Amino acid sequence: MSDTSHTLRIAQNPGADELLGRSPLAALVGMLLDQQIPMEWAFTGPYTLAERMGADDLDARRIAAYDPEAFVALFMEKPAMHRYPASMAGRVQQLCQYLVEMYDGDVVAVWEGASSGQDALRRLNDLPGFGKQKAQIFLALLGKRLGVRPEGWREAAGHYGDEGAYRSAADITGPESLSKVRDFKQEAKRAAKAAPPKKEAP
């Protein structure tokens, strides 16, 4: 992934998708931002951030060292980069500070150094702002769209690694698949609302 540009269609914006395909950090930041806003908005965020920083890519060291208040201002500049711009600016900066501290700012080292799919999942799960579900989705994205496939990656990604699934950003290849993923998410929300409340154990 560090040497080859891949084609992604998550943002549905040519410039943003081009950046996601060639920049591991952009893809990771897009995944981090993908909560409580539409996927296209989240994955356009890295492109918007790079533009506002006057760069054609994102750099973990530069973001980690950025003045926190000025960094929040980049997120809050209209149009805001997220529904919760100040909070997400902090999370992006924390992620980059972790990458600098643990991986010397080399984003691909997070997964290239993994011995297996489970190890890659653990490393992703350890990232600030990433829980198990987000880590599994990004692992599926790495395997399905970016050619990063440590042994056992599908199993480690759970149902997000299933072939032919339309569950997450990892399954988006264009407008049609985006619509299918959105339908799946909406159906999952409806099912969750309709499910009876779990009884507390005595």
Rank of each mutant, 00 (worst) to 15 (best):
V92R: 03
Q94F: 01
R91M: 11
P46S: 13
M88H: 05
A70W: 00
M76K: 13
A70V: 00
F75E: 13
L95Y: 12
Y84D: 05
M88T: 01
L58A: 04
R61H: 14
M53I: 04
T48Q: 14
A65Q: 13
I63V: 15
A60F: 09
I63Y: 11
M53W: 02
Q97M: 11
A70D: 07
A86Q: 11
Y66C: 15
G45S: 09
L95R: 09
P46V: 06
M81P: 02
G54W: 00
D56F: 01
F71H: 06
S87D: 12
R52E: 04
G45A: 14
A65F: 06
E51W: 01
A70T: 00
S87T: 09
A70F: 00
Y84P: 01
Y66S: 15
L58N: 04
Y47W: 07
E51A: 15
Q97F: 11
A50K: 07
I63D: 09
Q94L: 07
V92T: 06
E77W: 02
A70G: 12
E69D: 14
L74V: 03
P68R: 15
A80V: 04
M76N: 08
C96N: 07
R62D: 05
A86M: 02
D56L: 06
R61L: 09
H82C: 10
Y66F: 15
Y66P: 03
A86Y: 04
T48C: 14
Q94K: 14
R83S: 09
Q94W: 08
Q97Y: 10
E51F: 02
T48N: 11
D67V: 00
D57S: 15
D59R: 12
L58W: 02
R62P: 00
R91G: 06
